[in-house]
Design a protein around this nucleic acid. Structure first.
Length: 212
DNA sequence: GACCAGGCACATC
DNA sequence: GATGTGCATGGT
């Protein structure tokens, strides 16, 4: 499995090149994006992010001080806007009460402790917490999302009923705990899934098909 | 007009 | 622990 996973990574990296993830300007923007993209197409999240940026609210203080009704209006394009407004508020409430709104302080925490804390915030599940840890915190935590599950399932590496932790352990038990590797690997999986592995798979365009 | 998209909380069994 | 449901927009 170790060899297979590295082969997949090397092949994807050779074919697609570095992906430069996460698509965001700041660490805080990564966190906002991670929440807004829950079960939502990224193109819709971009519109919401652009609205927040235009209003100069893409900051902890901006989210904290803005009324829910206004936040909801601005993030409307990303869908589930009432739910997500509460999630943004819940996150910044935690962020201020635990770390005084300082990303540097939050990310000076031990990874396991911070993950437990993030999972304790309503609205942050495993994927969102892990995305924050990996892409904003630069921690070697592998993110399992719909793309990852789809690719692994289609190539027979997992079964359909494997849960998040089981899938994640395939990566963490077989790869070195390297932030840059986990970042690039996950981004490449997303790229592969979009290019060749959608609902109607184009397996002839799949660069890793020969590795199995 | 159906179907899909980088989840999650909550109720119920 | 497993399963079902609500949340909502914009692109194909």
């Amino acid at each position: 499995m170790k060899k297979l996973l590295l082969n997949i990574y090397e092949t994807l990296h050779r074919v697609y090149g570095p992906q430069h993830w996460w698509p965001a300007r700041t660490r805080f923007e990564i966190i906002i994006g991670a929440i807004l993209t829950q079960n939502t197409a990224w193109s819709n999240v971009e519109k919401a992010i652009a609205n927040l940026r235009r209003e100069r609210l893409l900051t902890p203080d901006g989210i904290k001080k803005t009324r829910k009704s206004k936040l909801a209006r601005l993030i409307r394009p990303s869908g589930y806007y009432n739910v997500k407004t509460d999630r943004l508020k819940d996150f910044v409430n935690y962020f201020y009460s635990a770390y005084g709104g300082s990303l540097r302080r939050m990310f000076s925490c031990d990874t396991a402790k911070l993950r437990r804390e993030l999972l304790g915030v309503k609205g942050l599940g495993r994927e969102t917490a892990d995305s924050i840890l990996l892409y904003a915190g630069k921690r070697p935590v592998f993110v399992i999302d719909a793309y990852t599950t789809r690719v692994l399932s289609r190539h027979g590496i997992i079964r359909d009923n494997d849960d998040y932790d089981q899938i994640q352990s395939i990566f963490t038990e077989n790869l070195p705990a390297d932030y840059l590797l986990f970042n690039e690997y996950h981004a490449l999986i997303v790229r592969l899934s979009k290019e060749a592995c959608r609902k109607r798979p184009n397996c002839r365009a799949c660069p890793i098909a020969d590795l199995f």
